[in-house]
Structure formats: C-alpha cells, structure tokens
C-alpha cells in the first residue's frame, strides 16, 4: 500500500462494474484503480459512455461494483449494508449533480439541512449547520427561497452547500458546471477548489479541459478503463482533444 493509499479518503482498487449478462452485457468499468487524498481535487475526464458517472456512483456507494473494492475513509464499502452506506452519504460523502438536483418542494436551507435531519439531528441543529454552509458559499440570503426561484448558479451553490454541510469530507461532483454559463461555472469550480484546500477530498467529473485545470490530478477514462493519469498542471492540454 502506498503512502497515498494509506492516507486516501477514497480508494478504488481494481473496480469493475458489469451491467446485464450475456448478449446485453455492458462493462461500464474495467479494473479501475485510483485514490484521492484529503486536500486533493481529482478531475475525471472521458467521452460519453466512458464510465465516469458509474465510477462516481460506485465511489459514493449508490451503486455496487461487480469486482474490486471501494474504500471511503479506510472503510470498505462492500462490508457495509445499504443503511450504513446511506449513513456514510449523510456524514462523509457529498454529491453535486450537473442539474443541481435540489428538491423543489424544500427551501434552500431545508435542502441543505435534509441530510442532517435524515440523520436524526434536531431540526434547529441541522438548520444551523445548513445556514453555516450556505454562508460559507455566499448564499446565506437565499436560505428561504425555493429552488424554482433561484438561478442556476445559485442552485448549484446551494447544492454544493448541501454536499459539504456537516463537515463532509468527500465531494463527488458530476459535471457541476454543465448547466451553467462560463463565469458562473468558474465561480463554482473555485468554491470546490476552496473546499478541497480546506481539507476535503474532491472528485470532479468534467468534459472541459479548462475545468480540469482546477484539479490537482486528472484521470482519463475510456470505455471503462483508466487510460491515463497525470498531474493537472503537467497535462496542460494534452489528451484534452481525446477527452472531448
């Protein structure tokens, strides 16, 4: 085990994910291994259907690998039951989606407080944590608005607040800027970068090379296989064309 693996908050080891059997078999991930350490933001790039989203779902315990293992904060997810994996998503892992995915029936603050309330925190406690997270992301004034009344950038900030609220340390972002204009997208990525600099581990799935530049490392996926892995600074734009 390397030092990086030892300290990794997320460690995927020889992970594969096969959907269906026989003629309908689809190998979404094949022997994928990589780690993300605290303070690190890893960009995951690849063309459509390369397995990026599947990898993110597997990493967060929403989906189960058919081979290999996924460890979050040193805990092998396959050793956990469904309820314990759910618990991990309430306490350790935060998801950010391309289309924000806020629950329309809840206000911004309630959306952010939801994991805490589901975890059984007192309503006041969960809301306090939510307000803190919203303030950190600069949207404290939007706390009482419903998602439908927020712009895309505002919604995504709230979604990130939901992903980081309550000291969660692994942020899994699936094209968080895909539905945003360029400058708003940059702001969102800056926020993610800041969270990672503050000690969180981040995985950023993206199509765009300039977004990958915010990452410490870039992992390239194609047809479910890691084809390249490089430090973001070094890659520059190498392989970006392939990713596109």
């Amino acid at each position: 085990m390397t030092a990086r693996q030892q300290h990794a908050l997320l460690a995927l080891t020889h992970v594969s994910r096969v959907h269906g059997t026989g003629a309908t078999e689809v190998r979404a991930l094949r022997d994928v291994s990589f780690e993300v350490a605290p303070g690190e933001l890893v960009a995951l790039m690849g063309p459509s259907g390369s397995g990026k989203s599947t990898l993110l779902h597997v990493a967060g315990g929403l989906d189960q690998p058919t081979g290999g293992s996924v460890a979050v904060d040193g805990t092998d997810l396959s050793s956990l039951g469904q309820a314990e994996r759910a618990r991990l998503r309430r306490t350790t892992i935060g998801y950010v989606f391309q289309d924000f995915n806020l629950i329309p029936a809840l206000t911004a603050e309630e959306n952010v407080a939801l994991p805490g309330e589901l975890h059984g925190l007192r309503s006041g406690e969960a809301r306090e944590a939510a307000r803190a997270a919203l303030a950190e992301l600069g949207v404290a004034d939007l706390a009482d608005r419903f998602p439908d009344d927020l712009s895309g950038g505002q919604q995504q900030r709230v979604a990130i607040a939901r992903a980081v609220a309550g000291e969660r340390r692994l942020i899994l972002a699936d094209e968080p800027t895909g539905a945003l204009d360029t400058s708003t997208g940059e702001q969102i990525l800056r926020l993610l970068r800041e969270r990672c600099d503050a000690g969180a581990a981040g995985v950023l799935v993206t199509h765009e090379a300039r977004h990958a530049a915010w990452a410490d490392r870039v992992v390239f996926l194609r047809d479910g296989v890691v084809v390249d892995e490089a430090d973001a600074g070094l890659t520059g734009l190498a392989g970006m064309t392939g990713a596109r």
Partner: peptide
C-alpha cells in the same frame, strides 16, 4: 436525490 444525500430505503 434523498438517497444520494444519505436517505436509507426505510
């Protein structure tokens, strides 16, 4: 979405 933020099946 709730499941993604940690809701259990229950």
């Amino acid at each position: 979405l709730m499941a993604a933020v940690g809701a259990t099946p229950a």
